[in-house]
């Protein structure tokens, strides 16, 4: 690997394979993501999209190949894993906010306990983030008192509070009522425009078209086709890509 590649590519996946028991869920994955790039992953359900992005912050463990995040190789070394996790924010389909903590506590928890930040400072940053995602007035509420769209925006703020270099999104709008999808996508778009490196699994093709620098199409654990949105929506090459797009568009 050249020093140049280290510089540009914040995420490097080389020949990554993973099995669930006998089931080969990730097959020889090769993917590099550049700093500030927004990559959208699409593909049919069960194709391994979630598994792929969960390998990047070690919520799942890959069995062969190499994953390097911001120059840190993912090995069994717990320090590396915790380092990578604290630099990588993740947003889940089901939000996964901590129900026993207020919105403010949800957001300040990791900065205080992982980054050892002062509470005042963490709260100041949390308020800025809540402004950014448009719900500063909800700071003292509990997650159960918010709508789905508001919860997901809190989840984004919580991830951003760690000042991550990379944000992973796993179908962030799939559990939302239709009228709330846009408020979350708007936040994500603003984040992308601010230069965040993002890896997004989504079925929102409008978002992919507008925001993605590249689209990755996965099927049956393989990366089938990679290209710009323009390429995908005007001139897809692979038969499986064409079939999938014809079903979803």
């Amino acid at each position: 690997m050249s020093g140049q590649a280290q510089q540009d590519d914040i995420i490097i996946l080389q020949n990554v394979n993973k099995w669930f028991g006998e089931f080969h869920v990730l097959r020889d994955i090769n993917l590099n993501v550049k700093r500030q790039e927004v990559v959208v992953i699409i593909g049919p359900s069960g194709s391994g999209k979630s598994t792929l992005i969960r390998c990047i912050n070690r919520l799942e463990e890959h069995q062969s190949g190499e994953i390097i995040v911001d120059g840190i190789p993912l090995t069994h070394d717990v320090r590396n894993i915790e380092k990578i996790r604290s630099e990588t924010g993740m947003v889940f389909q089901q939000f996964n906010l901590f129900p026993h903590l207020t919105v403010m506590e949800n957001i300040t928890l990791a900065p205080i306990h992982v980054r050892k930040m002062k509470k005042d400072e963490a709260e100041k940053i949390a308020m800025e983030l809540l402004e950014r995602v448009g719900i500063p007035e909800q700071a003292q509420k509990y997650p159960g008192q918010l709508s789905g769209g508001q919860q997901q925006r809190v989840a984004i703020a919580r991830a951003l509070a760690m000042r991550p270099k990379i944000m992973l999104f796993d179908e962030p709008t799939s559990a939302l009522d239709p009228e709330m999808i846009k408020e979350v996508l708007d936040v994500m778009q603003e984040l992308a425009e601010s230069g965040m490196t993002m890896l997004v699994v989504t079925h929102e093709m409008g978002f992919a078209k507008e925001v993605a620098d590249r689209i990755v199409f996965m099927d049956s654990g393989e990366i089938v086709e990679v290209g710009t949105p323009e390429h995908f929506f005007t001139n897809p090459q692979h038969e499986r890509t064409k079939l999938f797009l014809s079903q979803i568009l």
């Binding site: 070690r58 919520l59 915790e82 993740m90 889940f92 906010l97 901590f98 990791a110 992982v114 919580r158």
Partner: peptide, 17 residues
Amino acid sequence: PKGQYEAAMSLGLSTYQ
């Protein structure tokens, strides 16, 4: 729920935390 563990881990909390 499992999602609580995953959210905590994804924020970089140690197992103890």
